[in-house]
Nucleic acid binder design. Structure first.
Lengths: 106, 106
DNA sequence: TTGACATGCAGGCATCTACCTGCATATTAT
DNA sequence: ATAATATGCAGGTAGATGCCTGCATGTCAA
């Protein structure tokens, strides 16, 4: 997993909307996805290319159409590496801050 | 939670390293964090400012020092909104793609 | 008080990003 | 075959980003 590509891909509202659209209905064509975006088709293509480079979306060509599918695997890996790690220490991390704040008051 | 700020904050290797550093030892000063980065102190300040704006880091002033603490809450919220959603449909999403690929072969 | 230390603030610069337009290619339908 | 449809590819531009340097401010210690 390339954390950089995944986070950068997720760091744009248009691309997050594309993932949501695909979550509602998987396997949509570029044209279908564009109907829900207010930008030129070529711009959407670029966004989908970034999602594909991050492995968040896979595509299949069907005739002159290109179908887009979500790949949930990188999201899970992001969770394992970047959320669970901090999640596990959640209480102790907040404890550190609370302790520091209390120390400040003394 | 501001998903845009959180993902953009996470979309930079320096900032992810800062989070890792704080995970190893919470409550570090700017100077301590800088020792582990190969860039000017002012650049690190900017990165920490972005992490703070995304609410991923909280700071406390202690004399002339500034202590930095991880705030794991936004990460959890990101997980709830952007990972679990797709995680729940993980198998069915992959099924959609598999089905499409099989259909292509027929 | 004065010098050393930790951090803040402002401006400049190269690069990246997200958008666009214009045109090319490939597939389907008449 | 030809027209309509779906997508690909190649620049071009305004604004965001990440880095820097130089200087200012605030705090501690001798």
């Amino acid at each position: 997993m390339d954390a950089d590509k995944v986070f950068k891909a997720l760091g744009d509202p248009t691309r997050r909307k594309l993932l949501d659209l695909l979550c509602e209905k998987n396997g949509q064509t570029l044209g279908q996805l564009c109907e829900n975006l207010e930008m030129a088709r070529q711009s959407a293509t670029q966004h989908l290319g970034i999602l594909e480079a991050a492995n968040l979306v896979s595509t299949v060509k069907r005739g002159r159409e290109k179908l887009h599918f979500i790949n949930p695997v990188p999201l899970h890996e992001v969770y394992e590496r970047w959320v669970r790690k901090f999640e596990r220490q959640r209480l102790s991390l907040l404890h550190d801050l609370k302790k520091e704040l209390e120390g400040d008051e003394q």
